[in-house]
Design a protein around this nucleic acid. Structure first.
Lengths: 145, 145
DNA sequence: GGCAGTTACTATCATTTTGCAAGCGACCCG
DNA sequence: CGGGTCGCTTGCAAAATGATAGTAACTGCC
């Protein structure tokens, strides 16, 4: 049938990675979440080359995860803010962070605290239906059609 | 003090992305989870060039997410299996999948079902302490020292 | 008004990574 | 012994990334 029998087209993981599937994009989102919303802040925080940062910012904008927003008229200056889609991606970054802490976590690392309780946040992916952590119950695939 | 004042060193997200921060690596993990554990299966399923696949497989092996395992002595053949670290990464892929379905989900997509209940799995990232979905409560950063 | 300083970039080019295509060695099967 | 499959490697072209320099718009200071 098809040239190479892949399921990329029907795989939601691939659909997600099409939009944010690179390191810099994710780190940009993380930094924006931390309040580093301006070009120079991002550039110095990440140590990224300006042309690369520009490209990532417009890719993320095109992908609908961030948007430019004017914060000063004179001088005219913009900052980059998360859209709903961008904010919805943050839990994934926290899950990646939890994994990174567990498997690559030498030395002191930054972390999130619950602003109210002050407790350290421990992100876990669960199935909203069963409430059970993903991986604790056997799953099965279903392909379209 | 430091050249560019970045927090890459102390950020667990970056620590995670150091190991799996690219598209192919994640798709390889996804395919191995689906049971496509052999070189040719991965290559044809992903439509990836053989040299690239080789490089990704050894990078993932070096990073400790997968390992080679002999499944036939004659002829000598190996397959790639997930380690504990690799299996621990799968929930993140499912969270990415859920995001991709929501924001880039045109057409029919594959999905996971709970093997027992038959219900569609809906991955959500929560804080294990509060039980609340990440994003539903205000958080605060804490940097080391 | 003139000049340094800041912000937010773009342009140019070297380097690195990715990707295509072809080939290769080990084996198995007829 | 002649194909065929599996699991790669090699060589080379194309694309992405990254370092560096420069530019444009403005502010604020003397």
């Amino acid at each position: 049938m098809s040239e190479h029998e892949n399921n990329l087209g029907t795989c939601p993981v691939d659909r997600g990675l099409m939009r944010v599937g690179d390191r810099w994009s994710m780190l940009v989102l993380r930094d924006i979440e931390r309040g580093l919303t301006r070009y120079e802040q991002l550039r110095t925080s990440l140590g990224i080359a300006p042309n690369i940062l520009s490209r990532r910012l417009s890719a993320l904008t095109d992908a609908g995860l961030i948007e430019k927003s004017r914060y000063s008229e004179r001088p005219p200056r913009d900052e980059y803010l998360l859209t709903d889609a961008g904010r919805d991606f943050l839990p994934i970054l926290m899950a990646i962070g939890a994994w990174g802490r567990k498997y690559n976590g030498g030395g002191a690392l930054s972390r999130h605290l619950d602003a109210e309780t002050g407790e350290v946040v421990r992100p876990v992916v669960i199935d909203a239906n069963s409430g059970a952590p993903i991986g604790s119950r056997p799953l099965r695939f279903e392909y379209p059609e």
